[in-house]
Amino acid sequence: MTASATDIIETPADTRKSGQFLYKASVVFLCAWVIVPLYFLLINTLSSPEAVNAFPKSFIPEFDLGSLAFFANFAGILTALKNSVLVAALTMVMSIAIGAPAGYALSRFEFPGKGLFRLLILLTRAFPLPLLALPLAVMFIRTGPDDTAFGLALVHTTLAIPFAVLITFSLFSGIPIELEEAAWTLGCTRFTAFTKVVFPLILPGITASAIFAFVISWNEVFAAAVLTIENRTLTAFLLQNLDTSPLHLKFAGGFILIVPALIFIFAVRKYLFAMWGIANR
């Protein structure tokens, strides 16, 4: 891989053509590298359970909904799916509601303790957070939200908050303060200037970071497995049944896990890079 990069870049003028070819071939190869495994999963998902367990495999899907039907009828799986959506939605709402004000404060004010606060946020991002699910399980049993969507959403929010703060920080920083000041001189309070000017401008970006929080929660496995017993999320359910469940259930489940992710990445693709660009610094 790296060797071919050197080749492309160092190609002298007379061999430019072969360099171009190598470059295009690499692009195609890397696209295939991402897409082909997904395609294999798609084949398995759109095949009957018998075909999934048969050998050798066909490389084109037979468009049979048998596996998906089996998945839908498997005991507990729809509840798990519902739980996943619920936890992810709660995480999305909480992380933005709690994180966005802090992102605003970081972008608009200089205040003593700002450096310390940023450090706390960055520290959170650098920790293997799912590990903290262990004591939280004990804490939740004592205080109530054990084995609930809300309890798990609290942990996922902790996971999503550093991203929410840093992303909203960079979004707010992209709105010139003059716009707010202009609104103040035109009869707005701090609050109405926010709702009438800043909020409409930032809405697409906020949506993107909310979706990002949703995906973080949707995909999280470890804390979900630790914190839920009866109310499994889809990831926790699949993990728990990995040894025992038939192949076609695993593949259909994997496919269902991936679909929202594909849509979400497509929805936020415009913001992905802007979000990281500034959050880095």
Binding site: V27, L30, C31, V34, I35, P37, L38, F40, L41, N44, V215, W218, N219, E220, V221, T235, L238, L239, K250, F251, G253, G254, L257, I258, P260, A261, L262, F264, I265, F266, R269, L272
Partner: peptide
């Protein structure tokens, strides 16, 4: 191309494991 290359970003480690299990 960027969209295709960033698709795995949204895919959980569990789902990725299952995808490679299919192979």
């Amino acid at each position: 191309i960027l969209y295709i290359w960033t698709i795995p970003l949204g895919i959980s480690d569990l789902a990725a494991g299952i995808i490679w299990l299919a192979i």
